[in-house]
């Protein structure tokens, strides 16, 4: 597989090395997903543009208390970060069972979010938390919700000559968040379903609810009907069961059939809500 490896030193140079019309020119961050795609023969790049020398790694909090993570920050660095553990524990917990230590040492959050495999663990969590990414291109920067990144299986709204540069996660504030990953083989396998919830409890009722499911369809999906049932009243689990799968045309895969996944969603949605509630106390 002959390709050229470009190693630009600045963001401007990196963007100029990309090609708005040629999908065989791709950015490479950790390369963990790209290497697998190349080995499987589904990607034959002509040029890979390495983002390793752009100074895009680092974690800090911004003026509004938001978490700011550079695109080249490794998943392992995020998992170990005190800032993340204290302020956004759901992210650190999610990372613990994402792949294995070696993959997390190398994989970056930018590559993770750009890859858009619907089985990935962070996109549902970050979508439920209302996170955004900054995307840079020749015309400048734009910021979009993580939720709007995925448009289909391995497809995103990032243009071929654009790059993710930054992830921003708003402070949790009064919300409590949980992510449950249901795997059908080992604990750190790809999920059969992933259920992310972010809930703002006020006593026994919920003021604001955000529920996003991964691995069930071709991209992470928000369960708006479930959110409506959750907000403003006491929890009715029977209503919830019905709403849990009505909006989704769940797709079966290696990790479970569609019928099985539907049942998993019902069960894991309840558990995720209970976990978030336990944390809020």
């Amino acid at each position: 597989m002959p390709f050229e490896l470009a190693e630009p030193r600045s963001l401007r140079e990196a963007i100029a090395s990309l090609d708005a019309k040629d999908p065989s020119v791709r950015p490479i961050s950790g390369g963990t997903a790209l290497m697998l795609m190349m080995k499987a023969g589904v990607l034959r790049p002509s040029r890979l543009v390495s983002l390793g020398k752009l100074g895009l790694a680092g974690i800090r909090t911004g003026p509004g208390g938001e978490l700011r993570v550079g695109a080249m920050t490794s998943l392992r660095t995020i998992e170990k970060s005190e800032i993340v553990r204290k302020g956004w524990p759901v992210i650190a917990r999610t990372l613990r069972t994402l792949a294995n230590v070696r993959v997390r040492n190398v994989a970056t959050v930018g590559g993770h979010l750009a890859h858009a495999d619907p089985h990935m663990d962070l996109p549902p969590v970050l979508s439920a938390l209302g996170a955004r990414v900054t995307i840079a291109g020749a015309a400048g920067e734009r910021s979009i919700p993580v939720e709007e990144l995925g448009t289909g299986y391995l497809e995103t709204s990032i243009r071929l000559d654009e790059l993710i540069t930054l992830l921003e996660v708003p402070p949790l504030g009064g919300r409590s968040a949980a992510y449950l990953k249901c795997t059908t083989r080992s604990a750190d396998d790809w999920p059969a379903v992933g259920v992310a919830v972010s809930l703002d409890f006020q006593g026994d009722s919920i003021r604001e609810a955000s529920v996003v499911i991964g691995a069930a369809t071709d991209k992470p999906t928000r369960l708006a009907a479930v959110e409506r049932i959750l907000v403003g009243r006491k929890l009715d689990e029977n209503l919830l069961d019905e709403a849990a799968t009505q909006e989704l045309s769940v797709e079966g895969d290696l990790h479970g059939s569609a019928a099985y996944k539907k049942q998993l969603i019902r069960v894991y949605l309840r558990r995720a809500i209970h976990e978030a509630r336990a944390q809020s106390r």
Partner: peptide, 13 residues
């Protein structure tokens, strides 16, 4: 100082 999977790691890196 960090373990990597050499099978997925470009030598150039």
């Amino acid at each position: 100082g960090r373990a990597v999977s050499g099978c997925l790691y470009l030598a150039s890196f």
